[in-house]
Every structure is written in structure tokens, then in C-alpha cells.
Design a protein around this nucleic acid. Structure first.
Lengths: 221, 221
DNA sequence: TCAGCAATGTTGACACCGTCAACTTTGCTG
DNA sequence: CAGCAAAGTTGACGGTGTCAACATTGCTGA
């Protein structure tokens, strides 16, 4: 019987209790993912930790995927917040670098959260539009930073460039940057260095070097 | 009773039968991964498809992870073969580009196999050294290609560079190249373009562009 | 006030899964 | 041909997601 009320005693009525258990499930799920990884996440374990029957969460999440979509959404939001906070400088070029560092740093600090977002099969997008919106928001941070940079460097001739082509080119720029950041981050988050028997410190202190190379590749087109 | 004998009737004795069932398990597992993804791989499903009791595979694989390690090893080997075959040109720079194209092409053609190697939590390395050896072999293809390129461009002053520092620098080069390739490939292999609601053809025909940018980033240090 | 009702939580079942233990069958070998 | 080790089978246990039926709760309108 509702042990979670002890941990979340603020409830005053039915609706509040509802939000409490739903919220408690989300928090407990996030805790499981953060400590043991998404593979260990199960509705029954969440229910068990909350001292509630194994079916109680089903009143608030139609399936495991619905709970997963919720915590993935939150992970994207928190990730986007970190990127936003890190991007401070007025110089768009420097702001981009700040974002890149923040990206890599997040993946290193929170490998399980990073794997949750980018390393597992996500629930179907069509049935979880909120999750997609959060993910897109994070991606838009990169697109916006690129747009600012482009604006600051705009040549008069750019006026003639057609909008959609321009957008597509910028998205391609974003894909390149994201590819390099994501590749590095996921290699680091996986145990690839260990798996391959490479020097343990191989990927340490490579952030700046990686950004330099991204810059080089960025101007190579 | 051993329906798989019908499919693999070449057996002549006990030992041959052993290899048959073991081999049949591996082939069936690879088929499952190729058609439904690694998540759908289960020892019981393999046994069922082979018309054999659910415990029979345990005579040949101590656990699910042991079967997984075996098919991951084979995936790495087949991947390495593809890279090797594609790398034909005498010019080390062109050979590197050929390898890059082959890498991206493989990930696009076989997204489930790619995810098997690079997108899932692999079994423990210490207990599966053969798997690690195959993975390392694939990585060494890149290192060797880089070494050839360096040799072809060697300046006389390079003679003074210390070996281990040189190796470390080359591994860092490899990490950059691999990061970009892997990032792009895994973004493509995941349904990220769909998840983010980006133009469906955004990542088409980007292979050459990506290689150009890698080249640019490569020379930026 | 209180009957009724919808929301919420519980219990039990089913079909999956990996894995351990005990058993039977098989086929080679001394 | 007896024996033995390897191979395969059967059954069980605890874990999972999920469906169905039931119990409880607390608000609401007569």
C-alpha cells in the first residue's frame, strides 16, 4: 500500500496522488538509469522500489516504452539545458566551441544518460511526439548556433542564396559537427578503448584537439 | 530430436554433429540479428528455430553472452574483410578514402550488423578475448592505413620522432577519423533523421563531403 | 448525507526470457 | 560388449511485460 507516500507526503487528494506516483515512477526510473543503465530499467523494479504493486505504474504509463519515452524526454531536456547554459560567449565561433566542450563533457560525466539518449533503440517516434520535440530542441541549439555564426560572417553575396538550400547546407554542417562529437562521445562512453586494448589515457585531453579538427573540417568545403 | 540435422545433413559422427549444432546456432543467431536486430536474439528462439530443446545450445555456449560474443566476433571479421577488400589503391591517401567509403557503405547496407558491433553493450572483454582480437584487427586496418600514409609523406626530420609518441599521435588521428565515421554511421543507422523530423534525404550523398571534411580536419593540427 | 461512479491500486495469470539440475540417449572405445 | 563421456531433453525457478478481474478510494450529484 503506497509506500511512496512516505517519500512524497505532499499529496492532498486523488489528483495530487496521481501526479505523485507518476512523478515518483519517473524519478525512480531516472535513478535506475543513472546508476545501473537503461538495460536494468523495468516497470516491476520501479514498482518494487516504490513499495507498490507491479501493476500500479500501468495506471500512469501504458507500457514500458511510455515510461522510457518520458525519461528520454527529460534526459534530452536536461541535456539541452546543459548545452544552453554553457553557451555564453557573444562571439558565435567561441559559443560553438563552448557548446562542443559541454557536449563532450556531458557524455563523459553522464555516460549512462548519454547512452539512454543516443545509444539505445528509442520508442517509436510517432507514438511519442513529446520525446521527439525534446530531441529536436537539443538539435536546434546546434542549428541556431550555426545560424548565428553564419549571420556574423555573412557576405553581401549571400543574399542571393535561396533559403531552403541554405538551410539544407547548414543542416549538413550540423550533421558533420554532430557526427564527430557524437562519434567521439559514444566511443568514450562505450568501453571501446578497453575493448580494443588501446592505451587507457588515449582519449584524455582530446577535447580541444577534436574541436580544432572540427573547425578544420568545417572550413574544408 | 535434432531437426537441424535435416538442414545440416553433412554430419558423420558425434564431433561433426557438435560442430553442426554449434555452427547452426551461430548461423541462426546471425540470421536473427540481421533480420530482427540483436534485441530479438535469444537462446530459446535459436533453439526453437533449429527444432531443438531450449537447453541444447547450452552444451555449446555457456551463456547467451558467449553466443553473442561469437556472432560479434564474426561480424567484426566480416566487417574487416569488407574494409580490406575495398582498400585497393596504391596511393595511401586514396586507400584511406576507399576505406572510409566502405565503412559508411557497410553501415548503411547492414545497419543491424553495425549496431551489433557498435551500438550495444558487448559482453565482457576479459572473458571473451577472441571477440576483442577481431575488433582490434578491424581497428588496426585503420592504423595501418594511416601508417602507410605517414610513411609515404615522411620527412627526413621525422626520423627523430620517438616511436611511442608517434604511435600515440597516430592513434589520436585514428580516433578522430573513426569518431567522425562512426558518428555519421550510427546517426544514419539509428532513425535519428526521422526522430528529429529532419528532411529524409538530408544524409544522402554526403559520403564524399564527409571525407573531404575529415581530410580538412586531419590537416588542421 | 449518502449512493454511485470513475480513478486508482491489487492480485493472479500467461507467455516470454536465461539458467540450474537431473535425467535420458547416443556413440565411441577399451 | 560394457562402460563412459558427450550431447540432448525435461522440468523447475525467478525474472520480465502485459492482460483481466477484482478491491479500494475519494469525489460528486441527488
Amino acid at each position: 500500500m503506497a509506500t511512496y507516500l512516505i517519500e512524497y507526503p505532499q499529496r492532498v487528494g486523488c489528483m495530487a496522488k496521481l501526479r505523485d506516483l507518476k512523478e515518483a515512477c519517473v524519478l525512480e526510473a531516472l535513478a535506475i538509469v543513472a546508476s545501473d543503465g537503461v538495460e536494468k530499467l523495468s516497470l516491476r523494479e520501479v514498482a518494487r522500489r516504490l513499495g507498490v504493486s507491479h501493476q500500479a505504474p500501468y495506471r500512469h504509463f501504458a507500457s514500458r516504452d511510455h515510461l522510457l519515452a518520458e525519461i528520454v524526454s527529460r534526459a534530452f531536456r536536461s541535456f539541452a539545458d546543459v548545452l544552453t547554459e554553457a553557451t555564453r560567449d557573444d562571439d558565435p565561433q567561441i559559443a560553438l566551441a563552448e557548446m562542443g566542450i559541454a557536449y563532450l563533457d556531458y557524455a563523459r560525466r553522464e555516460p549512462l544518460a548519454y547512452r539512454l539518449m543516443f545509444g539505445t533503440l528509442l520508442p517509436d517516434v510517432q507514438t511519442h511526439p513529446a520525446m521527439m520535440a525534446e530531441a529536436r530542441h537539443a538539435f536546434d541549439l546546434l542549428l541556431n548556433a550555426l545560424a548565428k555564426r553564419k549571420k556574423a560572417r555573412a557576405m553581401p553575396t549571400d543574399v542571393f542564396a535561396r533559403g531552403s538550400d541554405e538551410d539544407l547546407a547548414m543542416m549538413r554542417d550540423a550533421i558533420f559537427i554532430w557526427s564527430t562529437l557524437h562519434g567521439f562521445a559514444s566511443i568514450q562512453a562505450s568501453s571501446a578503448v578497453e575493448t580494443l586494448g588501446l592505451p587507457a589515457n588515449l582519449m584524455d585531453n582530446m577535447f580541444e584537439e577534436l574541436l580544432t579538427r572540427i573547425r578544420g573540417g568545417f572550413e574544408a568545403t
